[in-house]
Amino acid sequence: MKEIAEVVAVDGHRITLSTELKSACSGCVQKSTCGAGILSHIFADRNTQFTVESDVPVRVGEQVQLTMHEADFTRYALLLYGLPILVLLLLAMLLSALGTLPEWTVILLAFSGFAASFLALKQWFKRRDVKVQQLIRVTQAEASASHTVKS
């Protein structure tokens, strides 16, 4: 998995990068006639910044290529999206099987577990941040992929 990012700041080996958040519509041929594609244009100017450690010599304003192995990306995506849904379903089934709680309580507790799993994952990712940052490899952007990001 590859992405082009712009170098925003350099502090020794720590590089702050900015990337444009893209929707799935950005690569679709029908984006100009589809309702979802039209809405994606409204929210097109979204950027995110993050810091990684790298030995690659870069300057502010330069374009770099970020690379992450597909297996690592898939693993973390499944964890982030799959675990909360699994918690929701398991809690709903377990609490329903008890048969002593009213339905509204089962729903409320299942969604509370869903939210709690997101918060737990957020804390887990914060503690593992260095490991996640090490999964991203920074290299010089290829000449054909280099372009200036509009400010």
Rank of each mutant, 00 (worst) to 15 (best):
V52E: 10
T100V: 02
K126S: 04
I42F: 04
I38M: 13
E53F: 03
L121D: 04
I4P: 13
G82I: 11
E53T: 12
I42Q: 02
D45P: 15
Q140Y: 10
T48D: 04
L109A: 10
V8D: 02
L108V: 10
E62W: 11
R46G: 11
V130F: 00
G61V: 15
A71K: 05
A143N: 08
I4A: 09
L121I: 06
R46C: 02
M68S: 14
A77W: 05
L135S: 14
T100S: 00
R46K: 09
G99V: 07
M93L: 12
L94W: 09
F73H: 15
Q49L: 07
T19Q: 03
L78T: 11
A44I: 00
H147M: 02
L108G: 12
I4V: 13
T33F: 03
E62G: 12
Q123K: 14
I136W: 12
W104F: 02
R14Q: 05
I15L: 01
I85R: 07
T16Y: 04
L17K: 15
V58I: 01
E103T: 06
R14P: 11
E103H: 14
A116L: 11
H69N: 03
S112W: 01
L90M: 08
R137F: 00
D129S: 14
L79I: 09
V29I: 09
Q134E: 12
F125G: 04
V87Y: 02
V52S: 11
E62Y: 10
E20V: 13
S146L: 08
V10Q: 09
L90D: 10
K131W: 00
G113E: 00
G27S: 12
L90S: 15
L88G: 04
P84C: 01
L80E: 11
G35C: 02
H69F: 08
G82N: 14
V7Y: 04
G12V: 01
T74D: 11
C28A: 07
L119E: 13
T67W: 13
A143G: 02
G113H: 14
M93T: 13
Q63A: 11
L108R: 08
G82Q: 03
H147Y: 01
S144V: 03
S23E: 09
A120M: 05
L88W: 06
G35Q: 14
I42S: 12
F111E: 01
E70H: 15
L101H: 10
G61I: 06
A143F: 07
L108T: 14
D11E: 13
I38F: 00
S23F: 03
K31C: 10
K22Q: 14
L101V: 00
R128D: 06
Y81C: 04
V58P: 14
L83S: 05
H13G: 13
D55R: 15
W104D: 05
T67E: 13
A115N: 05
A115E: 05
L88Y: 13
L79E: 06
T74L: 14
Q65C: 04
Q133L: 00
V106F: 01
F118Q: 07
S18V: 09
L80K: 11
F111Q: 07
K150P: 13
V8S: 04
A116G: 12
E53D: 10
